[in-house]
Amino acid sequence: MITPFLKNKGEFLGHLFFYALIMIGGQLAAYLFLYPLLLAYATMSRTPHRQLQPYLSRRFPHQNPWQRWWSAYRILLGMGQMLIDRSWLGLKPKARLHGTFEGIDKLQETLDSGRGAIIYLAHVGTWQTALAHITNMACRVHIMMAFDTQAVTKHFFELGRKRDFNIIDVSGFMGGMIEAINALEQGDVVLIMGDRASGGHTTTTTFLGAQIRLPVAAFSLAANTRVPVLIAFSAKHDRTHQVLKIWDVIHPDYTHGDRAQEMARCAHRFSRALENYVKEYPYQWYNFFDIWEQ
């Protein structure tokens, strides 16, 4: 049995090994090592297959077990490459992922009018490295996340890059909503992950044909501060090219209607956008748990 101590030590050594590999051979060397490593992991461990089963069975209902195994391997590879990219960008000052931001005009238009905006993300694609597209814009950017030192240090920007955004801690009173309101009222951009319900209000909608619970706090924030919610997902197209795209823009408003209904309508729009995304990029889904159970 592997003790937590050995597991942590193993994880630490694994990270160290990949950092060294990236420093010596760059992104490509780390990628090349990743293929056999993950092939071995996917062959020997049932964990990733079990974790991805809820998604794969709904996204690819007609796949046979071998095809599903291959799909899980492809998702693992994508995830591994994203982690390498993150480290590569943090460790190598000259490292660059080329990218485009489709729909940047929609965000710029909002900011030019003096209003803030919520950018609503999900754990898909190159969501971490794609943040650079937003943080490079001429506006203040805040990210709502649990302020956990370990999680923060794991992010690519902590590996050498200065953090060019503010973190709003969601673990405090009202889940950081007061700070988010103030930021939006100042015309800032607030980034929120929309696909995981971790406490707080949720609503039920469908995703890939089954019911799912999604958080609604962002829609309430937007309705009250009169800002739009821009649903943005990123995807990797090749080794050094990624695309961040605005998939939908929602203007939550329950001034004359029922709040719960409006929240459900917004969550439904988010879910449809996410479905469209996974239709186009089925192997860039990085929720390694059963989100239909949340």
């Binding site: 405090g172 009173f173 009202m174 889940g175 950081g176 909503m177 007061i178 700070e179 309101i181 103030n182 009222e185 707080g200 209000h201 609604v216 706090a217 309430s220 924030l221 009250n224 501060t225 709040r259």
Partner: peptide, 25 residues
């Protein structure tokens, strides 16, 4: 918490008072 969001905004709108952070809130 959803009511709280509305309350923060309404307090600012009606009384011109901005609640700055969660400690104050």
């Amino acid at each position: 918490s959803l009511d709280a969001v509305e309350l923060v905004v309404q307090v600012n709108k009606h009384f011109g008072v901005q609640i700055k952070d969660m400690t104050e809130g």
